[in-house]
Structure formats: C-alpha cells, structure tokens
C-alpha cells in the first residue's frame, strides 16, 4: 500500500510539473508580454524598459525556473491589472469556486449513482429507458444554456432564487445545478454499465444462493465493485467542473477562480493566468491522486498487490 501510494504520488507530481511547463511556455509563446504590459501607445524604448524591468529579456528556461521556484513558495508575483499580489487575489476567490465545485460534484453523484443503479437493476424496463433518455438530454444541453434557462425560470419568472452573486447559500443553488448537471450523464452511464456487468458476475449468483436479501446483494456485493471505475471518473469530472466553472461563474457573476481567470485572460494579466492554471491543474492532479488512493481502499486487489 505504501509502495502504491508513493508510486501514485510520484506520478501526480510529475503531471503537475509537466502542466506547469506547458502552461508557462504556451503563455509566453502566445505573444510578446512586454508589449501587452506596455500597452498599444508605448514607444519601442518603453517596451524595452519594461522587458528589462520584468526580466523578460532573459532565456525562457531561466524565467520558468525562477517562476517555479517562487511558485512552490506561494509567490506568484503581482497582478498587472489588480493592485494586489496574485496570492491574495486567489485566496479571496478560491472559496467560491471550491464550494461551487464540491456542491456540484456531490449533487451530481447523488443523482447519477442511484439513477445508474436503478437503471441497471431494472435493466430493459421503462425505468432504464427513462434514465437513459435523461442522460442523453443531459448531455445535449450546454452548461451555459442550462444556467440561463434556470435563471429565467427560477429567478426571473418565479422569483424564488437570486439571479447572480455568491453572498448567501441561496446563490449557490442554481449554479450548482447547472454545473453538476454536466457530470450526471457520464457518471450515470458508467454506474449503470458497471452495475450491469457486476450483477451478472458469478459472485452475485453466490450471494443470492446464500439467501441474502436483494438490498444486501445490490448494495454490499454489487455496488462496492461497480463503484470502483466511477470513483476515477468522478475525479476527472470534477476537473472538468473546475473548467466549466469559468463559464458558470461568468453566467451567474460569481467572483470565483473561474471568473478571475476570465478577467485575467481578457486583460492579458499573465501572472494571474499562470497562477490560476497551475492551481486548477494541481487541484485536478490532487483529486486524481485521491481517487487512486480511494480505489485502493475499495479494491483489495490494488491494495494488496
């Protein structure tokens, strides 16, 4: 188990470093940062001065290593646009995004997994077909469309919930539904397929031959095995949700990390963009690592290999 954990940890750190390299170089290749900072009115001499002031005249590798060295000590420099350090900006924005992401993930798992189990247990019946139709519809509706639709119905027409912002728990209801909706079809279908496969396994027949009740057979013997691939998928979906939250935060005007990224990209605020990309990637890698560990707990064949 220790060996497995260390192995996964090394993989996770390697992925995080790779992402940081790709993010750093892509941004620097996308245009001359000195010109962006100086603005369209600046003279060549001013641009050159900025280039020297920000150390942009040095080789990219040196710039990357310096940035990374500071980044591991949580120093991402200052924002070009906002008058504060990148770290304090992120610290003020990240709670909104993490709350939104966590609620959305819980919501989607609470809907998708039971629905998948139900569809598998009642395979081929009307319940199964309804669940599958639901997942097709789910996949066909873009996140922002659903977000706007929810606003029109629940905020504008019915006036039950606020349109935008993130100040109370009520503000989180609609964005969480819109964001969580995105993960439901994939998770539901994986749960359903996993359950279908497991329910026809020999050990399920053994469990039934023991005289166990359907509840014990389905939840103790089948779901425990069917849920293993779902855990890995849930981590991936949470990563997508962090990306999707850029759209949802914009639609609902929630000042989270996604909204910050959107603002920073629009204003060529490179230090902020780089930091947000690195943090989102690290969260994603961290979740994948957690999913691997959780799977080891669920599956003794991984744990005791």
């Amino acid at each position: 188990m220790l060996h497995y954990t260390l192995q996964r940890l090394v993989v996770a750190i390697s992925v995080a470093i790779t992402v940081s390299i790709v993010a750093f170089f892509l941004l620097h290749l996308s245009g001359d940062i000195a010109i962006s900072i100086a603005g369209p009115e600046a003279t060549p001499a001013q641009v050159e001065a900025i280039r020297q002031q920000f150390g942009l005249d040095r080789p990219l590798v040196v710039q990357y290593l310096e940035w990374l060295w500071k980044a591991v000590r949580f120093d991402f420099g200052d924002s070009f646009y906002f008058r504060s350090s990148v770290v304090s900006l992120i610290a003020s924005r990240i709670p909104v995004t993490l709350t939104l992401g966590a609620i959305s993930l819980c919501l989607s798992l609470l809907i998708a997994v039971p629905l998948g189990v139900l569809a598998a247990v009642y395979n081929g019946t009307i319940i199964d077909r309804l669940a599958l139709s639901f997942s097709v519809i789910g996949q066909a509706i873009p996140t922002f469309c659903l977000g706007l639709g929810l606003i029109i119905l629940f905020s504008v027409t019915l006036r039950w919930l606020p349109v935008s912002g993130a100040s109370t728990w009520k503000h989180y209801i609609l964005p969480s539904i819109a964001l969580g909706w995105y993960a439901v079809p994939a998770v539901m279908r994986l749960s359903r397929n996993g359950m279908l496969e497991v329910l026809s396994a020999d050990y399920i027949r053994t469990a039934r031959a023991k005289g166990l009740s359907p509840g014990v057979v389905i939840f103790k013997h089948a779901l425990r095995n069917a849920i293993i691939p779902v855990v890995a998928l849930a981590a991936v979906q949470f990563g997508f949700m962090l990306g999707g939250s850029i759209v949802i935060e914009a639609v609902f005007s929630m000042h989270g990390l996604g909204y910050l990224a959107w603002e920073a990209i629009a204003r060529n605020d490179f230090p902020v963009v780089q930091a947000v990309v690195l943090i989102l990637a690290t969260i994603y890698v961290g979740l994948t690592f957690l999913a691997d560990i959780l799977n080891a707990f669920l599956d003794p064949r991984i744990r005791l290999a």
Binding site: D202, Y203, R205, R224, N225
Partner: peptide
Amino acid sequence: FQEPMTSLNPAY
C-alpha cells in the same frame, strides 16, 4: 458453483 475463481466477491 463451477467457477471458484469468480464465485467469491473480490472486495470482501
């Protein structure tokens, strides 16, 4: 049953 390899639940 016939298949001892698959007749026991791998998770327990």
